[in-house]
Amino acid sequence: MSRSGYAALIALTLLVGAALFAPWLAPQNPYDLAALDVFDARLPPGSPAYAGQMHYWLGTDAQGRDMLSAMLYGLRISLVVGFASTVLALLIGIVFGLIAAWRGGWVDALVMRIVDVQLSFPAILLALVLLAVTGPGLAKIVLALVAAQWAYYARATRGVALVERNKDYIAAARLLRLPSWRVLAHHLLPNCLPTLLVVAALQLAAAISLEATLSFLGIGLPVTEPSLGLLIANGFQYLLSGRYWISVFPGVLLVLLLVSCNVLADALRRLADPREAAR
């Protein structure tokens, strides 16, 4: 893998670690209303707290919440949504992709036509409509993201599976009368994994970005579960009065996360396809 790929992997690991250990790393529990002090609202970065020894290194928001703490917890939510929707969409996509490739015929035609039609419409529109119907919520946004993204995995899985299916080892496994699910799970699937990993890394970034966008629009997550997107949205009105930190710092963290995912995906793609790397 390229050097930038390793750098992205390290950055991503650090971000996931920071999110995992947020309760221990954060100076403050941003959801504990008792810990917040209205006198500390909208303080610029580096300000000392009104009461106590604490410094707000990245400033505070409108409720007097420490931005650093809010960002660490926000990162947690963004990652949970991103990973949950990616894993679910991946599973559903694999199942449909494998079925389409394995059965062929009208099953294949039907699945792929649905995939084609869905992919011809922007994911954001589909997620927007679903959330408009269901209302905001953590589980609902995961559902909307899965609905918007499963088709990418289905198409990728089918593409690789079709190539593999016609190879000799699959014919041999079929001749041995191994059950279909065994051939699929033990022989076909492992060969699809490198491609799926690349798609998953790309789609993880897309899912996190889409969640942030939907939350920014006010139809993603409820205010009680502020992801990075919601934090940025909350700071929007203060941006115009020069209180940049409420939006800028969560945004930088979000961009860091997305860039890491995309650089990693790019490095994985070159790794999976050496011909591509030579270009």
């Binding site: 970034a205 970005s209 942030a212 966008t213 920014f216 629009l217 997107g229 940025i232 949205a233 929007f236 941006l239 115009l240 940049y244 939006s247 800028v248 945004g251 979000l254 961009v255 997305l258 860039v259 995912c261 995309n262």
Partner: peptide
């Protein structure tokens, strides 16, 4: 360009 979320870029440009 792929990685930057649209809404945040807009906000930064406004700023």
């Amino acid at each position: 360009g792929f990685s930057l979320p649209t809404f945040w870029v807009g906000m930064m440009l406004i700023m």
